[in-house]
Amino acid sequence: MKHLDERISDLVDDRLEHHERDRALVHLTVCAHCREAVELERDARNALRSLPALAPSDKLVASLMALAEPGEPLPPAPPASSTQPAPVAGWRPRDSRPPSGPSGSRPGGRASRRVRAVRVVALGMCTTGAMLILLASLGGTGSSPGTPDTPVSVVPPLEEFTVEHARSTGGLPFVEPASLLVGTVSSTGDGW
């Protein structure tokens, strides 16, 4: 079976069909690289979920509340609209639609700019975080695990390898069965 690649996200988000999920899990039992990719994906998801809720500053809250208060001082009327009739009401609810004309021609433009600035900053932070996570993902196991340029940390199971070595010598007629002594008798020596 090929590596999971793009199916890793589906597996982590539990979006795979039942049989596909089973196949993916079977593959994970034999593929260390995909296991690491899944772990990384899970870590990233958990990291995003564990981010603390953003608490807006008091100043920001006060500004937002002021937007809804009646009698808000209107911005100075632009010269072009000075001949227009006065508004019926002293205030009207702000909407979030973008201004249709020059920003200076819209009442409450300063607050609107402030909201937009907050949104831009929040969007930028989210985008930057997503980019960093994406880069970290690419710099981890990579999209094609198993290639030499995507190394993973390995600790050789030395005792298991020694047992397998002893087993492989079992069919050789003139070789000592010496490796099987490892772990069964004490060795002597000073080490190297």
Partner: peptide, 13 residues
């Protein structure tokens, strides 16, 4: 004499 060589992908930490 016998020698077993084991190859794994990765690097030693």
């Amino acid at each position: 004499m016998t020698v077993s060589v084991f190859e794994q992908i990765g690097w030693l930490d």
